[in-house]
Structures are given as C-alpha cells and as structure tokens.
Design a protein around this nucleic acid. Structure first.
Lengths: 338, 338
DNA sequence: TGTGGCAATCTGATCGTTCAAATGGAGCCC
DNA sequence: GGGCTCCATTTGAACGATCAGATTGCCACA
C-alpha cells in the first residue's frame, strides 16, 4: 500500500494480523495456528516481503556480516588463490545466512585499523582472515578485542589459538609423489623454495616421506625463489639429475612452468619424457596442461564460516586447527602414455 | 559506562550535553559553539565512539553498502583482472564512505535473484556490476527495478544506459603499436581473437589504425581462441611473416605467452629478435617479462562508485559512458637494445 | 522592565524489527 | 457458573541514530 518499501506493517495489515504474528510466521512458525500461518505466508509471498536487515541488526545487535580483508598482492600466484577463495566465501556465506563485507587496509595507518573501524561501526560481527604469517598482528588484536574470527592459514606461534584451517601440503605432495610413482616415472626430484618457509617445508616433507616410505632414496632436489627465470635455471640442473623418464614435483605451479620451459628447451615432451607437477591449480596450470593440486577452498570457506558462526553463538573454540587435503588434478604433464 | 557498546547516549552523558548535540558534532560541527564542540569531540575521541551503522541505516533508509557480484570464472585471464578490480573497489569504497558487499549468484535460480534479494533485504543501496555482455539480463533488471548501479564494461545494445566505464582497448593498442614503432621493430603483426568479440575487435582496431596513420600497411595478423596451445600454433605462422626484427602485438597476455613460447622454440630472444606485447598486466606478464597494458582499475572503480553515489543523491545519469586509457608497461619483451 | 530576535541546544517522534509481557477466548472441572 | 489452565495472538518497549520543531538563554532596543 505505502509508496516505499514493504514493511512488516504492510503485511500485517494485508493479512489482518499484528506485526508480531508476521514476525513469528518467519521465525517461529510453530507458534501460529495452521490457517493463520498459511494466510500470512501467502501475503508475504504475494507482496514479496523481506525483513529489513538494517532493522534486524539494530534490534539484535548483530549485523549478520563477516568481514574479509582483500590483500593487494600484485604477485600473481597469490591472486590465483585469493580470488577463488573470496568467491568461495561468498558462495558459502549464503548457507550460513550471512553476507561478506570485503575491505582493503591499503592506506590505513596500522594493519588492524580497518578491522577496528568495522567493529566499532558495527558493520560486521566477525572476520575471516587469510594469509596469516609469523608475526601477523591481526590474530593477536582480534583475540584481545574479543572479536570472533577464523583464519585461512595456520596461526603461527600461538598454539592456544585454534580457529584456523589450512591446506595439508604434506598430504598433497604425498599424493602427488605416489601418483608419479604409480605412473612409472623413474627418479622423482623436487623443486621447492629455500628452506625456512613453513608452507614450503611442509610441502617438501610430503615428497620426502613418501619416497622413504616406498624405499626410495629422496631423489635430487633444488630450491629457488618464486620466480620464473630462477625456476627455469634451477630446472636445467634437476633435469640432468633425474634424467629422461624421471619426474619433478614442484612446490608451485609457477615453478612447474619453469620446469616445463626448461624441458621444452631440451626437446623433452612434458608427460612423455619428463613428469611435471605443480601446486594450486592456478590458471597457469590449466593453460600449460600441468598436473597440480587443487586447494579445497570451498570446504575451507565453509568450515571457517561455521567456526565464526559457532563463536558468535557463544560456542567454544575448536580443540585444534583443521587441515584439509588438496585433491590431485591429473593432466598431461604426468601422463607417460601420451 | 554501560557494559556493551558505546552509544551516543554514553557520549552525551559524559559530555553533559544531549544526544542531538553529539550527533551534530559529527555531522554539522558548525552548529556548535567552539567550546562545546571541543568538549564533545574530546569525549568522542576518548571513548572511541563510532555511530552504529545499523541504526544509521534504519533511520536513513540507506545502508551505505554497494553490492558486487563475484563471478566464478575458473578462467585464469578473468581472475587476473577480477581480483585486482575487487581490491580496487574495496580501496576506493573508503573514500566514498561506503562498504563493499561481495556475493555470489552460484546456485541461484536466476541471474538476478541474488540482486533482488539484497535489495529487498536492504543489505545494499546499489550495485557495481562487471563483465557485462550482450544479452546480459542484469542491466535491464536493475534499470527496471530502479536500483542504482554502474557497470564495468559497456552495456551492450542499450545506448540509453550510460552508467558504465570501460577500458579503451583501441587507445591502448594504439599506444602499444606506437611504442613498438618507436622501438624500431620492422613489421608489426597482430595476434587476436576471432572477429565478432567486441572487446577483441576494439583492441585490433587500435593496432590497425595506428599502422595506417603511420603510413604502414597493416602487417600480418592471425586469430585464435584464448588458449595457449592455439596461440603457440598461430604464432609460428605469424613469426614467419613478420620475420626476425619484427614484433607481434597480442590481444591478451596469454596469447603473448604463446608467442613467446613459439619464439623460444625457434631460438629467437624476446625483445631482441622479436617484439612481443600483451594486454592486462596479469601476473603472467610479469613472470614472463612481457610488455603489456595495465588496466586503470583504480580509476574505474573510483568513477563507478562516484556514479552510484550521484545516482543515490538523485543526480542525473551521465551523458555517456566513460572510457579509460590503459597505461603501457614496458618490459624486456619489447626492448630491442637488450 | 518588557519584548523581539537570534543563536545554541534540547525534546519528541520515527525508521522496522523482535522480545517480553499482556490480552482474549476456548475448554474443562468441581 | 465461577475459576482455572492453556493457547493463539496482540500490545508496549527497546535497539541507536537523526530530523523537525520546541525551548532556553542572551543581547539589543524601546
């Protein structure tokens, strides 16, 4: 009837009941008698009524929104995971009845200023944070401020903080290594990052332990920065060591592209003459037809939103962080037949 | 004083003034007498008061949020632009005093259902949409529903809709072509997509017109899908035609990587023996050291948010869509000296 | 001393929803 | 039939902010 948006009053008037009855029809349908419920629901449907989330937020002191900081990396390998993860969060948010508010801290004075602002202005109830790293001030701050949050990536140096989920890189590289063994590649080398990076060391251990478990001496390995030129250079040496018929498992898709380049320079066909695998299932892996590991981003997003949801309900923190196993994406670069 | 959050009442009590005076201190400071203003501001500062955006939204019937749909591409070349654009929107949103609510329509019944939902639930005031394409139902729906919005990408087939900004691909490729001419490359070929794609045709025209303007016959050209293998194959033929000392401008970074591969197979060094350029400044371009065009994403995000802001204030639609010129990012692949 | 005018500040009402408590009516038993 | 319980539904109040209009205090001027 009224010119503006349809409110609960409009529905109540149209259905000949009170505001509260309409509210109950949506939240506590069991409180209404059959005929009344049906009538109210019909009017809601007909008018296309949706409760105003602004009014609900004011009343309940909950916004139903989760904040997520988008980091401006520039580095492609990070974008490749960050974007699909953001999409996954958006998709899973629907199932958790919340929205995703993305923001950027670029230009802020401190790394936590953006977070503090959104909490004080009551824009979000909780946060999901990504790319935690040793010395990251955000977990500490959020913890101290009593703001519920969950992290994609282990929270380093704080074993008491368990609201995180991460990819089980070791398990992933174990799968990759077994896959390469099963495919019949002779020697299986590894191209990783310099020691000391926790993510890198984790992945490397999956390769090493699997070879040992199969009674193989851990084959040749090399390390270089996340850079195409460096990877290509490092790959030349590794190719010599594993030889034709061998394989090289890499810590990332980018490194795998470097190996692919070096192999082609040498006239070796990926898959046939040399097995190559990467990690992340980034766009590059698809383009270059590289076997890789797909991160379980949807499952992680779902888990993290579930965590913050539970914390908002006053539930306890989980006993420990959660690891999710990536899934192998076999492509031509590890198919000896072809 | 109170246990929960700090409200305007707490500030008012602490400063010995009324709620309204506190409100005015923030919105209409000129209405307060000097000493009062200072006192109130000091208390606001001290208590860390921020108005509850939930309450403001309810009162003003404005949420101060802009919705942005994250499309789940899978295709890497799209992610490469989509993520930085999302980040740019988040960064610019601060300056426009609004938040960014990102969502996904995956799993929705219709493409506009997610939009309708957020409008009816009063979660956002307006939208920014990306990846408009001929036949896109979203502009029509938003237009009809009277929801303010602005599009990144031309709104095809609706010259009456002018709330859009796009990258001037023709101007960009004109810059690229001039750059290659100035660098002294002999023949300048073009590797693009099959005719009929509006974005592709636009880029191609920049190359063609520039060559004509410089009195050159438009050199050899080829077309292929956005696929590395196809690009590499197409590149072999083009390399023959432009010859050593020539250059190939590509419609995308991916195609440029294909050309780079073909050139290396042939033993030609990118930059020195053959000029190669791409478009988008994706992560790949950086990795492969390819000259490319950086999209003015920050400027576009700022412009689009400005547009929806104006529309919300009741301002008129712009006279026409806006084109933003990309900027050339010169790298080793177009540097004949090195 | 009284009054008009102006500037600075305060009070009442409202946005749309939901919780808690009140109301009304039907049914039952003594 | 009075009083009781029980259930479905309604009313009043509150969440926190802001607009419109009322009020106060101060000064000038008659």
């Amino acid at each position: 009837m009224s010119a503006g948006r349809i409110t609960i009053r409009d529905v109540a008037t149209a259905a000949g009941v009170s505001r509260q009855t309409v509210s109950n029809a949506l939240i506590h349908p069991e409180r209404l008698k059959g005929p009344t419920l049906e009538r109210v629901q019909a009017v809601i449907q007909e008018l296309g009524y949706r409760p105003s989330s602004a009014a609900q937020s004011l009343r309940s002191q909950r916004t139903g929104a989760v904040g997520f900081e988008l980091l401006a990396y520039g580095e492609s390998n990070r974008n490749e995971v960050a974007y699909p993860f953001t999409v996954a969060l958006g998709e899973m948010a629907i199932g958790h009845g919340c929205h995703l508010v993305t923001f950027s801290s670029a230009g802020a004075q401190s790394l936590t200023e953006g977070y503090a602002d959104m909490v004080r202005a009551q824009v979000v109830d909780a946060f999901v944070i990504a790319d935690t790293h040793p010395g990251d001030p955000r977990p500490d701050w959020l913890h101290q401020a009593g703001v519920p949050y969950a992290a994609f990536g282990r929270v380093w140096g704080r074993p008491d903080i368990t609201s995180w989920a991460d990819v089980d890189g070791a398990a992933g590289l174990a799968d990759v290594t077994e896959h390469l063994l099963a495919a019949g590649y002779e020697r299986i080398g590894y191209l990783g990052w310099p020691r000391g990076s926790s993510v890198g060391d984790d992945r490397r251990s999956g390769w090493e332990h699997t070879l040992l478990a199969y009674g193989r001496a851990p084959g040749p390995e090399a390390a270089c920065e996340q850079d195409l030129r460096a990877a290509t250079t490092a790959a030349y040496g590794l190719l010599d060591e594993v030889g034709r018929g061998g394989a090289i498992a890499c810590a990332s898709d980018l490194l795998a592209v470097g190996v692919e380049r070096a192999a082609r320079d040498r006239g070796w066909r990926p898959g046939t003459d040399i097995g190559i695998t990467g990690v992340d299932d980034s766009g590059m892996a698809g383009m270059f037809d590289l076997t890789t590991l797909a991160q379980p981003l949807t499952a992680i997003a779902d888990y993290l939103l579930g965590l913050v949801h539970k914390r908002l309900e006053g539930g306890p923190a989980p006993e420990s962080g959660a690891l999710f196993r990536p899934t192998l994406v076999p492509r031509a670069s590890s198919r000896p037949g072809h």
